[in-house]
């Protein structure tokens, strides 16, 4: 079977910008409204994933055959790629909350008060 890490990267590359966009917008909302919207931002990320799958199925379905010929199902490729993306998002959240804790402990959320 082909190298799954490389295959996952090739599969993730075309959807990276779209999903990073969802991650950055989620981080922005957390900065504005505070940590209490973090749960909702995971839902926002799920919307990003649903739209990714829809757009890929519509515009890039032909390349699915490449991954199947490498021995992997498309469900599996999405699982690996989206798990990688959610790991990046969690890392971004961790960095954000750590930075706020150390550098701006009295940061006041401006909205929703």
């Amino acid at each position: 079977m082909a190298n799954i890490r490389t295959l996952t990267w090739y599969f993730y590359k075309p959807i990276l910008a779209w999903n990073i966009g969802f991650s950055i917008s989620a981080i922005f909302y957390i900065l504005v409204y505070g940590p209490r919207v973090t749960g909702f931002m995971f839902f926002w990320k799920a919307v990003g994933y649903a739209s990714t799958i829809f757009l890929q199925s519509y515009s890039a379905k032909n390349v699915y055959m490449y991954y199947r010929n490498a021995g992997y199902s498309i469900k599996r490729m999405y699982t690996y790629a989206l798990a990688f993306d959610i790991a990046i998002f969690i890392l971004m959240l961790f960095i954000l909350f750590t930075a706020l804790h150390f550098f701006a402990p009295h940061y006041v959320y401006t909205k929703g008060r």
Partner: peptide, 8 residues
């Protein structure tokens, strides 16, 4: 149809 990803 063609099946290779076009950007790699």
């Amino acid at each position: 149809h063609n099946y290779l990803p076009t950007n790699i």
